[in-house]
Design a protein around this nucleic acid. Structure first.
Length: 113
DNA sequence: AGCGTGACACGAC
DNA sequence: GGTCGTGCCACGC
């Protein structure tokens, strides 16, 4: 399995109404420190994908896309539809960040409470 | 095969 | 508390 697929698997495992940071996804995918790669990969994802890419935000709880892009508003719309409240382009990580309990990779999920 | 790149994270101001 | 600058990794050209 390529790392790309590993990242897909992790993102795919994020429950609705919750979000994960790029770094978190990278770690869960077994690629600590490769946060940028996650964004890079997600950017190459086709638009018609089933992947819940909108549940991935940066460590600041902000949408990491250009505010004028279509994907930006798309992401906000989807999150909002799942009950995630976003203010000033920011959301509360402490409230919505995914706490992986039964991740596909129980191997490397290290996330302090 | 090598180099630049990016939807980031983290430590400092 | 926010903003700025540097480091990191794997991907794609």
């Amino acid at each position: 399995m390529s790392n790309r697929n590993a990242i897909f698997a992790v993102v795919n495992a994020i429950p609705p109404g919750q979000v994960a940071t790029y770094g978190q996804v990278a770690r869960l995918a077994g690629l600590p420190g490769a946060a940028r790669l996650v964004g890079n990969i997600l950017h190459t994802v086709p638009e018609d994908t089933r992947l819940p890419w909108h549940r991935v935000v940066n460590a600041q709880g902000r949408i990491s896309l250009p505010a004028d892009s279509a994907s930006y508003s798309e992401q906000i719309a989807r999150l909002c539809a799942e009950g995630v409240i976003i203010e000033k382009g920011r959301l509360s990580l402490t409230q919505y960040q995914w706490r992986p309990t039964e991740s596909p990779n129980p191997h490397s999920n290290r996330m302090p409470a």
